[in-house]
Design a protein around this nucleic acid. Structure first.
Lengths: 327, 327
DNA sequence: AACATTTACGTAAATACTGATATAAGGAAC
DNA sequence: GTTCCTTATATCAGTATTTACGTAAATGTT
């Protein structure tokens, strides 16, 4: 695997880059305050300017205006009160609210800071023109896109697509016999137990499935075999889906869906006309998946049960469902 | 004073904007890790990717590579060690160094995370194109400008210029008589004491300075009188600079320099041919300023001292100095 | 070799926040 | 007017980070 260095990661390292620039700007501006001999801190800037602009605000109003949590605003306002730059008064109309406003001393300090801020603004503009971009404008545009979209949701969709693209469906090979056993033993032991017929099939899949004209498919994800599904030929043109398993660690990635699609596709290539399966209500995720792909419940077949755990029998009838399987 | 709201502050609020976006990105990406069911944190990203890219690194190397302090890297590496994603070994060539490298499990986790990161990258690119800017490119360009320049230094220069532009030099008005007294009393009391001649001049500047053909100038900064300087006519064409004061709170802003420049200019407008002053070595900042503007020490005048504190007499001879007064 | 300086790293304390929880005031529903 | 829900805020605990400082190994200097 060829790794990339941090700087080569581009968009992925955007957060790191943002953080670096934030730290840099904050410490530079604090340094300027110190060197200018003004008693002021970077964290005071947003609150006091917001208060000066809007007259007087409560803790919560201030917090939403400057984009901090209210405990943070409580903390900073304590410092500003102590420095005498703001004053507090309880709202006569609402005893819970503590109204903050800038004092005369605060106004005076703001006037004193004006040339400092003008200098900082001037330098910032100068650096923007040297960089060839109006960085502020760009960031504001970006923020607006973030506001209008659902970043986390969109990322999750993209991740799901990427993960799906990383899953390969491969055919049976003798080396995979052990995987076939292990994957099925995992869920059988978890929910039920390994019955005699399970043991027979899992121990010798070539004789029990492949030879009679069935198939076994596997899902490979990042080099690992993470899921499987089998198609057993019951009679000519009549098949059964069985031994479908996805290892727990990789469930929720749509691997089961891909296996089912592949198995149905294989059934169609074999020109089968009937496809059924036996399952258990307990396996609700699997049942939901079968339904989404057009399997409908049918009456249990006559005679003795093949598997003790079976309590739901389904048949593939895609035309009668209006369900979109990729939803 | 017309205040601006936070969002109208533009460049000045750049830090605030950066911080907001950083927090947003970090929390979004952590959310994606959680929702994807991977055991991974945003703060692990930079260290493990750097280690994977460079094979093995010491704490300090890693810290400089990812732009964090070494205690931060120590802390994160503890978490990564505990999660089994990295391993440590002491450098055989240097017993102080602890070499960190990615374990097989770590490599496995990196492979698992690849689709997640691909999804994040894809979404980020998508958002960039929606915003109409290659935000990453813009920030990299901006960072490069920051690297090549001296942000704090440049800001301080700009601040000094802004502050200087905010200082006005104004002529004497009767209402300012009290300021003239107070400003001089401040430094006289701090370093020496108010002598009889001081009291006489400060109490009645109009009779003692203005009437005989001299002048008094004041520096006004943000509406406040913060400094003063006087020019006394000793004989026709012969003047003395005296009663130069800048209130302590506003020293270091170049106000003394501006007063001195203004007083010399006034002297030149009066077609004076001789300009001198009396001072004291203790006032080293003032003495340095006088020298920078072309005042050179001269022998004390004969006869009784005008002021007891005087121990240095200077005369204006600008042609003989090669000093640049604005340096 | 003895000593001082530099370097690598850990630990402790400080800082700057967030999230969760508690509390009290206000408002709405019956 | 109770009762219940909502809102405003304080406080506490937790997290992620920095600065400051100490220790030990390595390196340089006399």
């Amino acid at each position: 695997m060829q790794h990339k260095t941090i700087t080569e990661l581009e968009e992925l390292a955007l957060g790191v880059l943002f953080k670096r620039l934030t730290d840099r700007l904050y410490s530079s501006i604090d340094q300027v305050y110190r060197d200018c001999g003004v008693d002021f801190q970077g964290s005071w800037f947003a609150p006091i300017v917001s208060l000066a602009a809007k007259g007087s605000q409560s803790i919560t109003e201030l917090a939403t205006d400057i984009g901090l949590s209210h405990p943070a605003v409580t903390h900073i306002s304590k410092q500003l009160l102590q420095a005498g730059l703001i004053q507090e008064s309880t709202d006569p109309a609402d005893g819970r609210r503590r109204l903050l406003s800038v004092t005369a001393l605060g106004e005076q300090r703001l006037r004193e800071l004006q040339p400092v801020w003008d200098g900082i603004t001037e330098t910032t503009r100068d650096y923007f023109s040297r960089a060839g971009h109006d960085v502020f404008r760009v960031l504001k545009d970006y923020e607006q896109v973030l506001d209008s979209g659902d970043l986390v949701g969109d990322m999750l969709v993209a991740v799901r697509r990427q993960r799906r693209a990383a899953v390969e469906i491969i055919a049976y090979q003798p080396e995979l016999a052990q995987d076939f056993y292990d994957l099925n033993a995992e869920w059988l032991k978890k929910y039920f137990f390994i019955e005699a017929r399970d043991e027979q099939i899992l121990r010798d899949p070539e004789q029990t499935i492949i030879q009679p004209g069935g198939a076994i498919l596997f899902a490979r994800f990042q080099g690992r075999i993470v899921g499987t599904s089998a198609l057993i030929k019951i009679q000519p043109g009549c098949y059964e889906i069985t031994k479908m398993a996805v290892t727990e660690r990789y469930q929720g990635l749509g691997i089961g869906r891909q296996l089912l699609e592949a198995v149905i596709q294989h059934f169609q290539q074999l020109d089968g006309h009937q496809l059924q399966l036996e399952t258990n209500q307990k396996l609700s995720a699997a049942v939901a998946l079968y339904q989404a792909y057009g399997f409908i419940p049918i009456a249990p077949p006559a005679g003795e049960k093949t598997y003790q755990r079976a309590d739901l029998y389904m048949r593939y009838q895609p035309d009668q469902t209006g369900v979109n399987p990729s939803a």
